[in-house]
Design a binder for these strands. Sequence first.
DNA 1: ACTTGTTACA
Length: 507
Amino acid sequence: MIRAYSLSETFSEEGFNLYREMRRKGITPDPLSFSFVTKCCVKGSSSVLEGLQVHARVLRDGHRSDSRLLTTVMDFYSSFKRFDDACKVFDEMSHRDTIAWNVLISCYIRNGRTGDALVVFDMMESGHSGSQPDDVTCLLVLQACSNLGALEFGERVRRYIQEHGYGHLRNLCNALIAMYSRCGCVGKAYQLFTGMPNRDVVSWTAMISGLASHGHGREAIDAFREMLRMGVAPDEQTFTGVLSACSHSGLVDEGWMFFDHMSKEFGILPNIHHFGCMVDLLGRVGLLDQAYQLILSMSFSPDPTMWRTLLGACRIHGHVALGERVIEHLIELKAQEAGDYVLLLNIYSSVGNWEKVIEVRKWMKEKGIQTTPGCSTMEVKGEVHEFVVDDLSHPRKKEIYEMLDEIGKQLKIAGYVAEVTSELHNSGAEEKANRLSYHSEKLAMAFGILATPPGTTIRVAKNLRTCVDCHNFAKMLSGVYNREIIIRDRNRFHCFREGQCSCNDYW
DNA sequence: ACTTGTTACA
């Protein structure tokens, strides 16, 4: 079984075959060999069935009290998203060490229960689990914080890291850089990054991507060049970061150049993500036909997301004909979703084709297509406040709406004109095209002004993309009220300061 | 045994 162990990293199938051979010869596997073969069964290299067989055998051979072995079995279930099975194994373990708890955290993250991962950290730190968090626990929990945008929790983990002497570990620094970036604090990410003595390709990539998502395209490219000067070799992910930097900052020539260089100079062939970034880049600046041609020129077939990216570009530029064609492609892939029809609606409304808007809406209603309502959240003193369109549920709603009126007056003086013309939102079926409504991010921003001392940065997280009007509103607000406002979109950050935004998506 | 960086859409 030693051979199976050494094979388990790369040739999982052979590992399982060896196990089978062993059984055929009547040799009883010991816990260690069970552990190796289970590792061969994790997602990506085998089917669930093989692992299930092993698990059954483990139980039959009386290893149900071997917690190390069960930890591996649990991880196997977790990797196949069999959440309940994984939890069952965890519950049945007689003894749980830090690693078992780590696997539980990893299982929560993999299965979309990210918030619960933080709860587990709480339990571990407070001693309720009987095991203390270690460096891997921190790594996993930082990942959870990144996903949730939970800055305060992330800082708490950082303190834990420092207090327990993990501060020098490179992978933890890398995870912290990502956490800060994804919580909207590139500045802090950069500070940490510059303080690191040994930066590897992961550190650089995290920093480049962080700068990219905040709209600091030039700085991201500078970082990339600096990385090359330091002799660190870029990989696929690095180029994903670099190309996304170009797309978020509208750097078309640079984008083409890097896209070209990556294979010619670095021997890295563009994958679907790289093409996705290029389509986004070209689409955003209005080179829609080039973007379309690039998709058609690929040697692999485009995925739904790729088409969706192009559809988003059609919305920005009001390109009806191409938009309709893209929808066809999505339908062909049987991948069209509610959000796609909302984009199509916005394309029609942006060119004033109200007949089509009504037609599509009616059709959506008939088909019972449910759209996702826009929702914004804001964290004040560790408490998360949630807002939806025209929200009336917040306990301080009266103050919030009064504040909105007041802000509206102030911004009007400064020259803000509400844009009520074209944008439609996923705010529910009954929304009318020309109604002036308070989108969730406006409510959140007003609450931010209300609930935090002057000068405090206002951080808003939104589940969908911000509309042009709210974007203008935030710009003006940042100038008139002298506040830094950071809105975390679906996929990037808008940093508003002194009446400007770091992005160039909206004009 | 568990483990760092990844793009695009609403």
